[in-house]
Computed example of a mutant assay.
Amino acid sequence: MNDYQIRLGVKEDEEFLWEMLYQAIFIPEGEPRPSRDILKEPHIAQSMEGWGREGDIALIAMDADQTLIGAVWVRLFDDTNKTYGYVDEKTPLLGMALLPEYRGKGLGKALLGKMLKIAKQSGYEAVSLSVDPNNPALHLYHKFGFKQIGVDGTSWDMVVKF
């Protein structure tokens, strides 16, 4: 897929980032997607609530028509607001999603690669994430050097160090 652009996210992208948070919820093939009310669950909502605080970074992918099609984001948490994939207050937690019709075309690889470069340039020593081990994105995370460091419910906590 070559006709896309990636730009830095802005505060006005918050609504789209909420949609991407919903899309990031892994649902096994053939199972129904949960209601969007799942975004109100505290451990999920805190992943995006108050977007735009210090340390929040997003990259937004757009198609040739400037339609938003995917995003990757990092943000810092601490012991008072930790969520899935949390390591420590110095390690940003990564989230990423694409609209379903854009998956498997190399866009996730481009987004993740750019975000990891930005995170490293921002002085972070590592980035963490949480992923269901059945999620096809796990292969991509392994390619970029993410290693499993724990299990939280049905998901793996992973980290890549720079």
Rank of each mutant, 00 (worst) to 15 (best):
residue 42 P to S: 10
residue 43 H to M: 14
residue 49 E to I: 12
residue 55 G to W: 02
residue 56 D to V: 09
residue 57 I to P: 05
residue 57 I to K: 10
residue 58 A to E: 05
residue 59 L to T: 06
residue 59 L to R: 09
residue 61 A to H: 02
residue 62 M to L: 12
residue 63 D to M: 08
residue 65 D to N: 13
residue 65 D to W: 09
residue 68 L to Y: 15
residue 70 G to V: 03
residue 72 V to P: 01
residue 73 W to G: 11
residue 73 W to F: 10
residue 75 R to V: 01
residue 85 G to C: 07
residue 90 K to N: 11
residue 92 P to L: 08
residue 94 L to Q: 04
residue 95 G to Q: 09
residue 95 G to E: 08
residue 97 A to F: 04
residue 97 A to C: 05
residue 99 L to W: 07
residue 99 L to V: 11
residue 102 Y to Q: 02
residue 102 Y to D: 02
residue 106 G to Q: 05
residue 106 G to T: 05
residue 107 L to S: 07
residue 111 L to M: 08
residue 113 G to D: 06
residue 115 M to S: 07
residue 115 M to Y: 09
residue 117 K to E: 14
residue 117 K to C: 08
residue 118 I to C: 08
residue 118 I to Q: 05
residue 119 A to P: 10
residue 120 K to P: 01
residue 122 S to G: 02
residue 122 S to Q: 14
residue 123 G to L: 02
residue 125 E to F: 07
residue 126 A to C: 01
residue 128 S to L: 01
residue 129 L to F: 04
residue 131 V to M: 04
residue 131 V to R: 08
residue 132 D to C: 02
residue 133 P to I: 02
residue 133 P to G: 03
residue 137 A to D: 06
residue 139 H to Y: 13
residue 141 Y to E: 05
residue 141 Y to Q: 02
residue 142 H to A: 12
residue 144 F to Y: 14
residue 145 G to Q: 08
residue 145 G to H: 08
residue 145 G to A: 09
residue 146 F to I: 01
residue 149 I to K: 10
residue 150 G to A: 15
residue 152 D to P: 00
